[in-house]
Computed example of a mutant assay.
Amino acid sequence: METKFYSLEEVAKNDGKGGNRTWIVVKDSVYDVTDYLQQEEEHPGGNELIIEWAGKECTRPFDDAGHSSEAKKEMKQYKIGELREEDRKQKQQKKSGDAAAQAKNKENRRSCCSYLTCGLCD
Rank of each mutant, 00 (worst) to 15 (best):
R88C: 15
E86P: 09
Q93Y: 15
W53T: 02
Q93N: 14
D15K: 01
I51W: 10
G46I: 02
K94R: 01
S7N: 00
A100V: 02
K89D: 13
T22L: 02
V25D: 01
C112R: 09
Q90F: 05
W23D: 00
D87H: 05
Q39C: 08
L116S: 06
N20K: 14
N14T: 03
R21W: 03
L120Q: 08
P61G: 08
R110F: 05
T3V: 09
A103M: 00
N20C: 06
C112Q: 09
G66H: 02
S7C: 01
A71H: 07
Q77K: 15
A65S: 10
L8G: 06
M1L: 10
E86A: 11
E74S: 12
D64H: 13
T34E: 05
Q90I: 00
D64L: 14
K95F: 09
K4V: 13
C121M: 01
Y6K: 02
Q102H: 11
K95A: 08
S29D: 12
D63Y: 12
N108L: 11
A71P: 07
E42A: 11
S96Q: 15
S7H: 04
N47F: 11
A54Q: 04
S96L: 15
E41Q: 14
E107V: 00
Q92D: 14
E48K: 11
R60Y: 08
I24V: 14
Y6D: 09
L37F: 04
Y36I: 10
K56I: 02
K104N: 06
E41G: 09
W23H: 02
K73S: 10
Q39N: 10
Q93A: 13
S68G: 02
I51D: 10
R84T: 11
D63V: 15
V26D: 00
N14L: 02
K106V: 11
E82K: 13
N105H: 10
Q38R: 12
C118N: 06
E2S: 15
Q77R: 14
V26E: 00
Y36C: 03
A100W: 05
G46R: 04
